[in-house]
Design a binder for these strands. Structure first.
Length: 599
RNA sequence: GGCCCCGUGGUGUAGCGGUCUAACAUGCCACCCUGUCACGGUGGAGAUCGGGGGUUCAAAUCCCCCCGGGGUCGCCA
């Protein structure tokens, strides 16, 4: 195995009995019986019990008395069957133990700042400061090993299908759109900067022009924007691009990749193939989100028609103002207390909607037809007829005993509220099965949205997305109606991947840039390299980029991607292990031609 | 930048105006212990309760500001 050891701590079994072994690892636990000492030795592979006996090896025992938690030690001895009745079924190596003949302390350790041998929640900033110790703990160790298996699987999967792994530059050109770039000053070119890639988007398209046909890369992507539980300043994408493909080719490839990944890496989890497909419009209508958790239904119903017939002015005013009335049913929540209803109302207000109307549909039992007006509890009850309530309940697929949650207003203000409500109810009712991955494709996104600040058309995905061929004429007449050939993979409430068929024609690409308000000169400056490349026989191509961190997070059952990243950054983008970012010397700044401004 | 949550011995928690000279568990140190495996036993050390200011006769506890961590909106082509 190596010069320092013959076996790892997890591989010794009954068949090794009598074998002389040398092991090295960390002291996971020491049990000193005064004379007899047990030390659980731990390495990456696992744990084995070693026994120090004063009669067989007094010198080794002397060393063992010095050993403490997390000391690095090396022992030599013989594998023994444990005495009958002392086997430990919790250990893979629990049938045997190593009788130590010689022991050596390779390195001592201070008492760790937190438990390594116990699963206790530790404050995250402490874990991050001592991440190298945190990585020894089972949770992080397993997550990092899982991540390795996921990445290995993806590489093998794509290699087997003819994909070529190409490395692309990390120091590239800053582009104006999208996220804020991380900038790197140039020593050689005073006043000029490189940018770290937000993704290798343009580069991989040029690889297609370069004739690679099938490219992939574990690509690090950098975005100087605020973090979230599922967002870090740097993250890793499985960047994929293919030539001579249509959208359908890419979706099928991804469906195959993800289903085989899950069945191979986490066979205990459920996954449904084929993945359901939704248009953007459809999924927003039904779930008020472009990445809903589809492990549960809780579909959102459009109540605008019936709400417009009521005497309830909050509804009718909203509709008159061009808004909609939408709602969902919270199963079995008809008995919610005032306090619980207030909590839901608070969520709605915090999400920016004007308010929440709750309609309690009495007690469970019987059908909606048997609902009496006296069963109904709602502040709007006197403005609604029983027929209207029953119809709204029916549209929400509600039963007696349920709670209707209804929000009225403009779509852009009620959708966040409906999304929050849907997730909150699912959380309270524990509707999301932790052992299921509900993948889905979302397709047919609009290409452009009009910026509220500038009034300009902005790309929803990115400006290299190819419009649906039939929509190209709309570029001249109504850009907001143009649907792009782009697609997301969503799973359990997360956007896992995003991709598109790209433009490979310089004229069309130029047209898109112009539509977005770029002047000819800007276009040549910023994107001339792309447009020129398209003039030299660019093949039709498209791709996608699944997020590795989010994928591993889901497979690991974690709630944040920090748990699957060896050295993640905090919400304020700091690396607590290294203390980055940090000031640099005046000499360094001078070399880079940088003066710091007073803020 | 907005909103919300958290910060008490090394670690995890309790305490939420006076009984706090701050409790419990674990870890740590010492001694005892030859079959434990979260070993056991006895003893001990260890906290100006994130920092500052205020209210009060009295503050870990109430108020304000700041710092740090987290969640989220904005942001993330």
């Amino acid at each position: 195995m190596s010069l320092l050891r013959t076996h790892n701590c997890n591989e010794l079994r009954k068949e090794h009995i009598g074998t002389a072994v040398t092991l090295a690892g960390w002291v996971n636990r020491r049990r000193d019986h005064g004379g007899l000492i047990f030390i659980d030795l731990r390495d990456r592979a696992g744990i084995v019990q070693t026994v120090f006996n004063p009669e067989t090896s007094p010198d080794a025992l002397k060393n063992a008395e010095e050993m403490r938690t997390e000391f690095v030690v090396r022992i030599s001895g013989e594998v023994n069957l444990r005495p009958a009745g002392t086997e430990n079924p919790h250990l893979a190596t629990g049938d045997i133990e190593v009788i130590v003949k010689e022991a050596e302390i390779l390195n001592t350790s201070r008492t760790p700042p937190f438990y390594i041998n116990e699963e206790v929640e530790i404050e995250e900033n402490l874990r991050l400061k001592y991440r190298y110790l945190d990585l020894r703990r089972p949770r992080m160790k397993e997550n990092i090993l899982l991540r390795h298996r996921v990445v290995k699987f993806m590489r093998d999967f794509l290699d087997a299908r003819g994909f070529v792994d190409v490395e692309t530059p990390i120091l590239i050109k800053s582009t104006p759109e999208g996220a804020r770039d991380y900038l790197v000053p140039s020593r050689v070119h005073p006043g000029e900067f490189y940018a770290l890639p937000q993704s290798p988007q343009q580069i991989k398209q040029l690889l297609m022009v370069g004739g690679l046909e099938k490219y992939y890369q574990m690509a690090r992507c950098f975005r100087d924007e605020d973090t979230r539980a599922d967002r870090q300043p740097e993250h890793t994408q499985l960047d994929v691009e293919m030539s001579f493909v249509e959208q359908e080719d890419i979706l099928r490839l991804m469906e195959e990749l993800y289903t085989s990944l899950v069945t191979t890496i986490t066979p205990q989890k459920r996954v449904v193939k084929p993945f359901p497909r939704f248009t953007y419009r459809d999924i927003m209508e039904r779930y008020a989100s472009d990445k809903p958790d589809l492990r549960y239904a809780l579909e959102i119903a459009d109540l605008t028609d019936i709400a417009g017939q009521t005497e309830f002015t909050i509804f009718t005013d909203a509709i008159t103002g061009g808004g909609r009335v939408k709602g969902l049913a919270a199963p079995g929540c008809g008995n919610y207390t005032r306090h619980q209803l207030d909590e839901l109302n608070r969520l709605v207000l915090d999400s920016g909607a004007k308010g929440l109307l709750t309609v309690s549909l009495g007690h469970p039992g019987g059908t909606l037809d048997e609902l009496a007006i006296d069963d109904v509890k709602s502040v709007a009850a006197k403005y609604l007829t029983l027929d209207q309530i029953q119809e709204m309940a029916q549209l929400c697929r509600a039963d007696k005993g349920d709670l209707l949650l209804i929000v009225a207003g403009q779509e852009n203000e009620i959708y966040p509220a409906l999304d929050v409500l849907r997730r909150e109810i699912a959380c309270r009712l524990k509707l999301a099965d932790p052992d299921t991955f509900a993948f889905a494709f979302v397709v047919d996104f609009p290409m452009f949205t009009r910026s509220e600040e500038t009034g300009k058309w902005e790309a929803i995905h990115h400006p290299f997305t190819h419009p649906r061929p039939e929509d190209i004429p709309l570029l001249d007449t109504s850009p907001g109606d143009v649907i792009g050939q782009n697609y997301d993979i969503i799973c359990n409430g997360y956007e896992l991947a995003s991709g598109s068929i790209r433009i490979h024609n310089a004229d069309l690409q130029r047209k898109i840039f112009k539509l977005m308000g770029y002047q000819d000169e800007e276009i040549e400056n910023l994107f001339g390299h792309m447009l020129e490349a398209f003039d030299y026989g660019a093949p039709p191509h498209g791709g996608i980029a699944p997020g590795i961190d989010r994928t591993v997070m889901l497979l690991a059952g974690e709630d944040t991607i920090r748990e699957v990243i060896a050295f993640p950054k905090t919400q304020s983008a700091m690396d607590l292990t290294f203390g980055a970012p940090s000031p640099v010397t005046e000499e360094q700044l001078k070399e880079l031609h940088i003066d710091l401004r007073e803020e």
